[in-house]
């Protein structure tokens, strides 16, 4: 039937395929960061899926979302072994770090997580003081954008400009006054990575 989605041999890894988990506690904006990542990738012609954790488990507890970005159609939207992890709090680090794929990337919010996580050598670890940078910008809530900006710079999928351009699509209208600070936060995250390399 014509309405059935046609999938290709999408998981052979011959083509570009990036699985990301973003995790933190409720209120840190991990869903927003995930949506922004997926939406920006979609606008650039890539296939994407976005899967949030939902319901009561989110309220007051940990929140996470799974984003897959690929050249071809994506079959399963669930991520069990992520290529990249963006971790905003300590509880999420212990929950997800061990799931990282060999050769994967861990970006963590060093403002809230002390010390370097003990992970296999193949894993690239990047500490980003996301809360501190966001506070410097005058809005702690922009820490998610700092972390996402750092991730984009590190992975090189597309620049933080592209994500900043998509913010207007993702942020609810009532939050549009935060567009400038979120834009700045994305760039500051990216700049932080450049300054450390």
């Amino acid at each position: 039937m014509s309405w059935v989605t046609k999938y290709e041999m999408q998981d052979t890894r011959n083509e570009f395929y990036e699985e990301v988990v973003i995790a933190g506690f409720g209120g840190q904006g991990v869903m927003l960061a995930g949506k922004l990542l997926a939406h920006t990738a979609m606008k650039r012609g890539l296939e994407v899926t976005y899967m949030p954790s939902y319901g009561a488990e989110v309220r007051g507890g940990t929140a996470n979302c799974m984003v897959i970005i690929a050249k071809n159609k994506i079959a399963s939207p669930l991520v069990s072994r992520p290529d990249s992890l963006i971790i905003m709090n300590k509880a999420s680090l212990s929950k997800f770090a061990s799931r990282l794929k060999a050769g994967g990337l861990l970006i963590f919010n060093s403002s809230l997580i002390d010390g370097e996580p003990q992970l296999p050598d193949t894993i690239e670890i990047l500490a980003v003081p996301a809360d501190d940078i966001a506070l410097e910008l005058g809005n702690l809530k922009a820490a998610n954008m700092v972390a996402l900006g750092a991730y984009l710079q590190k992975r090189g999928l597309f620049g933080s400009d592209a994500a900043a351009d998509s913010l207007v699509d993702i942020l609810a209208k009532r939050h549009h006054r935060t567009l400038p600070v979120n834009t700045k936060a994305l760039h500051r995250g990216a700049e932080y990575v450049v300054s450390r390399s």
């Binding site: 309405w3 949506k35 997926a38 979609m42 296939e47 994407v48 899926t49 976005y50 899967m51 949030p52 939902y54 994506i74 939207p77 669930l78």
Partner: peptide
């Protein structure tokens, strides 16, 4: 199911 209800993907509305 809950995944299909909650997940996001690009779509075209017919």
């Amino acid at each position: 199911d809950g995944i299909l209800g909650q997940m996001m993907e690009p779509i075209v509305l017919d």
